[in-house]
Design a protein around this nucleic acid. Structure first.
Lengths: 229, 229
DNA sequence: CACGGATAGGGTCACCTTGACCAGAACTCG
DNA sequence: CGAGTTCTGGTCAAGGTGACCCTATCCGTG
């Protein structure tokens, strides 16, 4: 109706996090344009007319990284809509956060390269495209916070898993070493956080006593929370 | 480029919460259309071309409820973009959460009526317009959760305030009675949550011993959190 | 085979926070 | 004045946490 109101392009960008080699890592895709200055970007797609936002997020990951993530955790992070955030015109971007176990295939793209980058190596990829340097810290902080009061850490490991593997997820995401005995006490005492697989054990690559194997429990929230050191 | 991609209308809706008469209340506006079936709605506006999302949220509150909220807490809640959520065409709506002290002026509109509705009375206004019945519980849960681990409860009271007034904010938002002595111990022992105004006291409307007055402190987070009973 | 290194798993102890509860202080109202 | 209300300070037991210890059981190496 009023003059200054029109429509915007709406896009979805996905911050897909995983833990590989004890490091929190994020999926980045090569820039679309042949522009030399363009940085790597989060996988993102324009939303289709009849497509929900979360479906668009799954499609972005599938089309740009060749990853199907039907069972992965996927939640909305925030929406970024500054008028000048995209130089090609106004684009409102809804960011999603995805947590997946390490997919060992190195994420083939649709022609564009896609790869996981450890957080420590992000500096060499900066600046990222668009305002993705602003989305990234929000995604990391959300993941760190979610591990405190939800059972989502189990989304980062393949089942079955050991408590040592689960602890290394926390250590990678938080960037802090945890006391393994206290961690065990906390996890095991939280009802339905993890479920032991009776009689199943596994020895880690570095030796050591075989560890009990677990599966994800049904708990979604941790009461009380496991706070960062 | 591709055929099924176009642009969407982008709107901002605001869930503006306050505490009045010991009840958590939300600002609703009368339906715009003369449609008899239309329910009351959250104040919302289409985003202008050169306007940021949060500016649009402030404008929606100002234009639809006559309230200027320059210092109020305003944070993004979530984005609702189901293809069919608006019958007039696809509208992606970014919802914001606002927390304000009770504004005693009953919120004059721009011709449309606007009023605060206590949570208990919301049932008589249902169903709300569009998908606002889905936004509302998200806003309430966000507010309840924020009071646990942030100092935002002070946004609901006018300065200076007593600890009794602050406790009634928690009780209204959580819908639970709190032990006043334990509440006091927790609030006072949290560094920079509230600052006493030396020598200033106030007696409440029901009598009782005069209470020390406080102002908001600089703390943003509560360590450790004040968990719901 | 013996040993050290590494990881798992079980336990103790001091400290802190919390919830429940009690008691006194200081106001208003009848 | 007395009753009712609210504020404020205190105690106590229960539970969670961090720091630390010891033992169990694997791997690899000499």
């Amino acid at each position: 109706m009023a003059a200054p109101v029109s429509t915007c392009a709406v896009a979805v960008d996905v911050a897909l996090l995983t833990v590989r080699e004890r490091q929190l890592s994020i999926l980045l895709v090569e820039p679309d344009t042949p522009d030399l200055d363009a940085g790597w970007a989060l996988p993102g797609r324009r939303v289709r007319d009849d497509e929900s936002l979360i479906d668009c997020a799954r499609r972005a990951v599938r089309e740009l990284a060749g990853l199907a993530i039907p069972n992965a955790w996927l939640e909305q992070l925030a929406t970024y809509g500054e008028p000048q955030r995209d130089p090609h015109g106004r684009v409102v971007s809804v960011a999603y956060l995805a947590l997946v176990p390490d997919p060992n295939d190195p994420a083939p793209g649709d022609g564009r390269a896609a790869r996981f980058v450890a957080l420590d190596e992000i500096a060499s990829h900066r600046p990222l495209a668009y305002d993705h340097d602003r989305i990234l810290p929000d995604a990391i902080e959300r993941a760190r916070s979610k591990l405190e009061y939800t059972a989502l850490a189990t989304q980062f490991v393949q089942e079955p898993f050991t408590l040592g593997e689960l602890r290394r997820v926390y250590e990678a995401v938080w960037g802090e070493e945890l006391d393994s005995a206290n961690f065990r006490r906390k996890v095991v005492s939280t009802a339905d956080f993890v479920l032991p697989v009776d009689g199943e054990f596994r020895t880690g690559p570095g030796g050591g006593r075989p560890a009990q194997l677990y599966r994800r429990g049904t708990a979604e929230r941790l009461h009380p929370a496991m706070l960062r050191p």
